[in-house]
């Protein structure tokens, strides 16, 4: 795909084009959430629905290193404070 063909002029365009789509969000503290994006602002505060959160818990005590325990939970409607956001990835539109 031609990079210039996507019509993105500033990074927030990527987020705006993802409204009402399911997005992947990587957060500080080894957390990830996916959910349908309904609102965001310039701080990257987000409001998502149908959210699944994944927390990676690295077990350093009784497991060979590299073992990661994963905790998952679901939430209907979630506000995510922007300062915890590392990365947002829209659904891959082929």
């Amino acid at each position: 795909m031609d990079p210039s063909a996507t019509g993105i002029q500033e990074p927030f365009d990527l987020i705006r084009l993802s409204l009402s789509e399911r997005v992947f969000v990587k957060l500080r503290g080894d957390r990830e959430v996916t959910g349908i994006l309904h609102a965001y602002d310039g701080h990257m505060n987000l409001i998502l629905s149908d959210v699944e959160e994944t927390i990676m818990i690295v077990d350093t005590e009784n497991a060979p290193d590299g073992t990661v325990n994963v905790a998952k939970r679901k939430m209907e409607m979630l506000f995510v404070r922007g300062d915890g956001v590392i990365l947002v990835s829209p659904p891959s539109r082929a």
Binding site: D83, I86, L87, V88, S89, P90, S92
Partner: peptide, 9 residues
Amino acid sequence: YGDAFIRGN
């Protein structure tokens, strides 16, 4: 990721 937004901080 096909596309990725990285928060600048």
